[in-house]
């Protein structure tokens, strides 16, 4: 298989700079601090408990994993947000677009570089992560699941960044826009549910409805959470640690049937939420990549207006 030339070049160029060394150092440092903090809390709690301290070490897994995913979610958009706009600022973009590389190959090259770099960090953290498996007795398969989730988070973050990068001329604008979009995914998808809850409560206090616990199709606004990265991560780790679905434990959602409450009743049960959510994140990522490729293609509009 032929390696994308952009990936090869970017990794070579970036590995020669001190930035990558400082990046790994900062990443490991944060993980070490989180690890020691978590250990201290576990130790303190064990002093008042008869449970074995080692069984509590499994909690290092979600703590360290979530820490890493948050770092990836913050760092990866910055890397890709400056990918295309950086080429434009450096005045190398035009030359790149006159080569045989297709716009999609260019975009994929930049995204792959960001993903490979994020995997450098994740792999570097494996010894620390392994503690919860060796001492805490967790199944090793969860390590693979974590890698898969890290890959998905990297892809999603990178695709947001690269789309913003294709839109903006300046890297700084692209970075700000990426974070704005990221926040929109976190908070924007929560908004319909919050509005629904406020409306429900208002109706209850006004006496329009007598109960707020009944089944309602209105609760299907929670389907927006399928594309909420925070809900996705919480759902994954709650399921791993407790064996239960987080979404189904939200009042009124986990009970009832498709007929009485709409699709949310069905989707929130079992693993279906995770599967659907994963598919949607991959689909959104592909959409962003496609939009970015379309955006940087200089001849995309040909034929649309061929009149002098």
């Amino acid at each position: 298989m032929r390696l994308n030339p952009i990936v090869k070049k970017d990794i070579k160029v970036q590995s020669r700079s001190m930035r990558i060394c400082w990046g790994v150092f900062a990443y490991e440092l944060i993980l070490a601090l989180v690890f020691f903090l978590a250990m201290a809390i576990i130790q303190q709690e064990s002093a008042y408990s008869t449970n074995n301290i080692y069984s509590r070490l499994v909690w290092l897994y979600p703590v360290l994993a979530v820490t890493q995913l948050i770092i990836l979610g913050v760092v990866v958009p910055v890397r890709t947000a400056s990918a295309i706009s950086g080429e434009k600022e450096r005045q190398t973009f035009d030359i790149m677009m006159t080569t045989s590389m297709t716009p999609f190959s260019v975009i994929m090259g930049k995204v792959m570089t960001a993903i490979v770099q994020s995997m450098f960090f994740v792999v570097a953290s494996m010894p620390v992560m392994a503690l919860s498996f060796v001492i805490g007795g967790m199944s090793w398969s969860y390590l693979l699941w974590f890698l898969a989730i890290a890959l998905l988070v990297s892809l999603f973050s990178a695709s947001i960044g690269i789309w913003c990068s294709s839109l903006c001329k300046k890297s700084i604008s692209a970075v700000i826009m990426s974070y704005g979009l990221y926040v929109a995914f976190f908070l924007g998808t929560m908004l319909p549910y919050i509005i629904y809850q406020i409306a429900e409560s208002a109706a209850y206090y006004n006496g329009t409805v007598t109960t707020v616990t009944g089944y309602s199709y209105g609760e299907n606004v929670c389907l927006f959470w399928l594309i909420n990265p925070a809900v996705y991560l919480v759902e994954f780790f709650v399921e791993v640690m407790t064996g239960e679905s987080f979404v189904s434990q939200i009042p009124n959602i986990g009970t009832g049937t498709l007929q009485t409450g709409g699709p949310i009743r069905y989707i929130a049960s079992g693993h279906l939420w995770m599967v659907l959510s994963t598919v949607m994140f991959v689909a959104i990522s592909i959409l962003f990549l496609w939009l970015a490729a379309r955006r940087i293609n200089p001849i995309k509009k040909h034929g649309a207006k061929n009149k002098a």
Partner: peptide, 22 residues
């Protein structure tokens, strides 16, 4: 006007663009 990449040697610069033409 054109820019160049930092930390890339002349030979690697040529390699990069050559590989972009497959």
């Amino acid at each position: 006007f054109f820019g160049v990449y930092d930390n890339l040697k002349v030979r690697e610069y040529m390699d990069f663009y050559g590989s972009m033409y497959r």
